[in-house]
């Protein structure tokens, strides 16, 4: 029960946080994840304090779900020294390993090879944690993924491949970018445990992620899961929307957050007043994060040559 409310709280935070960020004129170049909150939160619910998560450039939702502090993240995204990396990494490249977020690397599929290296380190150390790598359907067409699947399987790395299939690679439809029937089928070729599930269904995401993480944690080698989600915003804050208004309106009806609220309310686990309170709380936390970021200074220009070598 509490876990269900916590997960809803986490999804609402991601939505409110990104809305708050997007409302800023100086928000910079961002890749947002509205419509994909259940993937981030469901996956994070299957990871523990020993685990590390790596992502591509669509990193904000996963990082918040993993427990990166909203204040520090907002400051990072707005280039302030209060950010998790003093504001010098930004959305595409921030990391917070103490929170179990090993980092974003915004070169599509390049990040997957890095994650396998972190997983190799875990294996060599007999570390109790596993590594999860979250990537989009766009990355499912890239060579680095296939090389890494092969080596991860050969070496039995404790690596969980997670594809957040939001159906679009910028403007290219998933059907036009990958010939496999299900993206998770790719993992099957290498003998992995695989599953494709509805990424808008939070309980299904959580359960699948947990099963897969347990499989990897047990030393069976890598697993590959695919969550089909939706993208409610354009690719990035600077990319034009390629879909029609009615198409987007239909997608909004599938919102994973509203779906989870309905499910909890229907089951009698959540009341209307509590729902509104949770929404307000999320908005409040996002605004607090924004206040923290605004109060944090930009770096001094002289910092440009620090930490290079």
């Amino acid at each position: 029960m509490n876990e269900a409310i916590d997960n809803l709280r986490a999804m609402l935070l991601i939505r409110a946080f990104e809305d708050c960020l997007a409302a800023r004129k100086d928000h910079g170049f961002q890749l947002l994840s509205s419509g994909e909150e259940a993937v981030s939160v469901g996956l994070a619910s299957a990871l523990n304090e020993h685990d590390q998560l790596l992502t591509g450039g669509r990193s904000i939702g996963p990082a918040l779900a993993r427990g990166v502090k909203p204040e520090r993240l907002m400051a990072e995204l707005l280039a302030r020294t209060g950010g998790v990396n003093r504001g010098r990494a930004g959305r595409g490249h921030f990391s917070d390993i103490d929170a179990g977020f090993f980092g974003a690397h915004a070169v599509v599929a390049g990040n997957i090879t890095i994650a396998a290296g972190v997983a190799l380190g875990r294996k060599l150390e007999n570390h109790p944690g596993i590594v999860a790598i979250l990537f989009g359907d766009g990355a499912s067409a890239a060579g680095a993924l296939y090389e890494t699947l092969n080596i991860a399987a050969l070496w039995k790395l404790p690596l969980l491949f997670v594809c957040n299939n939001n159906q679009l690679s910028v403007s290219t439809a998933r059907e036009a970018s990958n010939a496999a029937e299900n993206i998770s089928d790719i993992g099957g070729v290498f003998g992995m445990w695989t599953k494709s599930v509805d990424g808008l269904d939070l309980p299904a995401v959580s359960e699948t992620a947990r099963t897969a993480a347990d499989y990897v944690r047990a030393g069976n080698g890598p697993a590959f899961i695919e969550f089909s989600s939706i993208r409610l915003r354009s690719h990035s804050t600077t990319a034009r929307e390629t879909r029609k208004r009615d198409e987007l309106a239909a997608l909004r009806l599938k919102c994973p957050i509203e779906r989870e609220i309905r499910r909890l309310q229907d089951a009698g686990l959540l009341g209307q007043a509590q729902t509104e309170a949770l929404r307000d709380e999320a908005t409040q936390r996002a605004e607090t994060a924004m206040q923290f970021a605004d109060a944090s200074p930009y770096p001094d220009p002289s910092e440009v040559l620090e930490h290079v070598v």
């Binding site: 997957i112 890095i114 396998a116 290296g117 190799l120």
Partner: peptide, 10 residues
């Protein structure tokens, strides 16, 4: 990439 990742991991 794996070398870079395992290096980042210590």
């Amino acid at each position: 990439g794996i070398a870079a990742g395992v290096a980042a991991a210590g």
